[in-house]
Design a protein around this nucleic acid. Structure first.
Length: 194
DNA sequence: CTTTGGATCGTCT
DNA sequence: GACGATCCAAAGG
């Protein structure tokens, strides 16, 4: 992954990230669904009202991982994009498990307890589920996804982003403002989409 | 299948 | 003091 590929607006970077791999240890999963958040121009973004301690990572250089805590129990992961100082990010909403699925299932099962591990299709389905499966938490906020020495990395294995009819687009999920914007992107027909 | 309510806490107003 | 870029289990149809 070249960093300059991420130095662009979130509406360009979001579809570009579809098909890329997120790697953590022996685990790898392919991005199949994302949402774009455009910092200070976007009422639904954490950075809409400017820089705070929580959203500081969003203002960093492209390629950082922004992790935030939500609803008192969930972690969500974003890829920071755009120029440094501009708070753009792409939320990861669903991934297709590629490697290390046993470890992912164990991580999910540990949290779900009684109900056991979810079916493979649901391992990384949903923004909080995928961080749980991959073991991503607050300790990963601000790590450089493009550095070979980082625990969590973004890898391009040559699978091209979807284009034309293979690229689907619609409203973002779970927000209360700017709901008219169709800033969610996914791979059309992919069964791992949430 | 759909609907509903509970969990649970950091952050910003 | 309210609320959120959510998920899950239980209950109802």
């Amino acid at each position: 992954m070249r960093r300059d590929a991420l130095v662009a607006g979130p509406l360009d970077v979001a579809p570009f990230l579809l098909g890329k791999l997120v790697v953590h240890g022996e685990m790898a999963a392919r991005i199949v669904e994302v949402e774009a958040y455009h910092g200070e121009l976007d009422p639904a973004s954490h950075a809409y009202r400017g820089r705070t301690a929580r959203n500081a990572t969003m203002f960093g250089p492209a390629g950082l991982l922004y992790v935030y805590f939500s609803y008192g129990m969930h972690w969500c992961a974003n890829v920071v994009c755009g120029e440094e100082g501009v708070a753009c990010a792409v939320l990861l909403r669903a991934l297709e498990p590629v490697a290390g699925t046993g470890e992912m299932a164990a991580a999910r099962a540990a949290h779900r307890r009684a109900s056991g591990p979810p079916p493979e299709r649901d391992l990384c389905r949903g923004p909080a589920n995928l961080t749980r499966a991959l073991g991503i938490g607050k300790e990963h906020d601000g790590v450089d996804l493009l550095s070979p020495s980082s625990p969590v990395r973004l890898v391009d294995d040559g699978v091209p982003p979807p284009s034309g009819a293979a690229l689907a687009q619609g409203p973002r999920i779970g927000i209360s403002r700017a709901t008219e914007l169709e800033w969610r992107f996914w791979i059309a027909g992919n069964r791992y989409v949430s």
